[in-house]
């Protein structure tokens, strides 16, 4: 506890850096996964290919990806952009599958009835299919958010500023409290973001709660 109180400012600034890496990656992987997932859900032949590619992406260890990506993209190893791109790739690996499943889960009767009502194809996607895919999309997004926040810490091995530096520093200097603080701060941050997503989902999808009543 003493270590935490003495280093509140450090913990605060690392938390902010952590969020600045994690949040853009989470948002980007969600936004990019939607069209890919839609494509996989509507073009049966592409589904297996896209999902296998996404799965293999996940098998790449994160640390070498952080290191190798700059040699391909021309960033510096410690650039925020480098970390965000790598995290976005991992997020995509999880989110494409969720998006494909979510959009495929919208029942045929609802598609049919909205067509019969006179929705155009685009209108049907934005006003019927996307909202109805919402609950499954949200479940996928929650997994992506939590694992991204946890994964950010690996980049600290390269000296990138985030909560993971507390592990590296604490381990090298033998300060148990520092490592423990890093773990707890990361988990708490992940759970807070997760809770915020749940609240956002309730606000945007009131019908899911009504049905359970």
């Amino acid at each position: 506890m003493g270590w935490v109180l003495a280093n509140l400012e450090l913990i605060g600034s690392r938390t902010v850096s952590h969020l600045l890496l994690a949040v853009p990656a989470i948002v980007l992987s969600f936004v990019l996964a939607l069209p890919l997932g839609w494509f996989a859900a509507t073009h049966q032949w592409s589904r297996a290919t896209l999902l296998t590619a996404a799965g293999l992406l996940y098998a790449i260890p994160s640390l070498p990806l952080f290191v190798v990506l700059p040699t391909i993209l021309g960033f510096g190893v410690r650039d925020a952009a480098n970390v965000i791109v790598a995290l976005t790739l991992y997020g995509l690996a999880l989110m494409v599958r969720s998006a494909a499943d979510a959009l495929a889960s919208v029942g045929a009767p609802v598609r049919l009835s909205s067509t019969a009502l006179g929705y155009s194809a685009a209108g049907r996607f934005w006003q019927v299919e996307l909202p109805l895919a919402g609950p499954v999309l949200l479940a996928g997004l929650r997994v992506v958010a939590v694992s991204t926040i946890s994964l950010v810490t690996v980049s600290s091995l390269l000296g990138v500023d985030n909560l993971g530096l507390l592990f590296v520093d604490g381990f090298q200097r033998g300060i148990l409290a520092e490592v423990l603080t890093g773990i707890i701060a990361t988990v708490v941050l992940a759970l807070v973001i997760d809770a915020l997503l749940v609240l956002l989902g309730r606000a945007l999808m009131p019908w899911t709660r009504a049905a359970r009543r």
Partner: peptide, 16 residues
């Protein structure tokens, strides 16, 4: 919660 647990953190903690 386990998914939120940073593996690097656990490795260094148990290592210490």
């Amino acid at each position: 919660a386990a998914r939120a647990l940073p593996t690097l953190g656990v490795v260094t903690l148990v290592g210490l």
